[in-house]
Design a protein around this nucleic acid. Sequence first.
DNA 1: AGCCAGGACAAGT
DNA 2: ACTTGTCATGGC
Length: 283
Amino acid sequence: MYIFQGEKMKKTLDREKTVIKCPACFDLALCLDCGQAFRWEKTENGWRGVISGREYLLNQNGSSLEVSGSTDSESIHILENYFDFDRDYEAILDTLNNDKYFSKAASEYYGIRILRQESWEALCSFIISQNNNIPRIKGIISRLCENFGENTGNGAYSFPSAQRLSLLEVSDLAPLRSGFRAKYIIDAARKVSFGEVDLKKIEKMPIEQARQTLMSVKGVGPKVAECALLYGFNRLEAFPVDVWVKRILKELYPKGLPECFSGYEGIAQQYLFHWRRNLDTKE
DNA sequence: AGCCAGGACAAGT
DNA sequence: ACTTGTCATGGC
């Protein structure tokens, strides 16, 4: 987790505060803590995190999003894009709600949006996620950033670039305690850094070709590729199937997904994932 | 203490 | 084309 430097940092983050108007269907805490991003930390002053090397401290107050830390216009633009504020989730949920199970999940967890995370961070994070649990995933990623990211100046760290990680050896990642995943992280960093896997090109590829390209990375199978596409490339039709979603499919949709999910399977997946996971685990 | 985790891979059918 | 054992680590 982040290391804070007391009052000095607090003043830096509080110096300027900007308020953004939120769209309908936006719950900050749910967005940041529903299993799609692993790096946001809830503190007594709000949700703290880093996007594109910029540090943010966020608080939601009804339809207002209070932002401190990075508050220049470019940083605000980055934040609005991160939350995909321009997308009309009300309209999408109207359609998805035709399914009764989704409707139930959305009634309990209204306000989840699919974040537009940076593609490299999403890919790398979900490589780490495989056969792993969320608390430990967060710890490994936190150590990855502390060891190889850049300090924002306040004790928070950026997500290390593929270029930076490509220069390391597997043994350099020992402090992460990521187990067998270390070699996958290095392979991904090298393929991305050397352009063998071109993330910019993947953005424009047909989804099936994008899947195949991502899976050319060691340690990236169907599930991790699907997560990268959904969370890192905003492919809302991507549908990651983990053990929880597998249970959902078996218990609720033995004959397949309903037609009303078409095009937004990933959003449906996120609501159902979070809902199903919280039936067994209490936060 | 033992099972499980936002899986992938290789080896074996 | 399907099944099974293995892989590190640690949360619960």
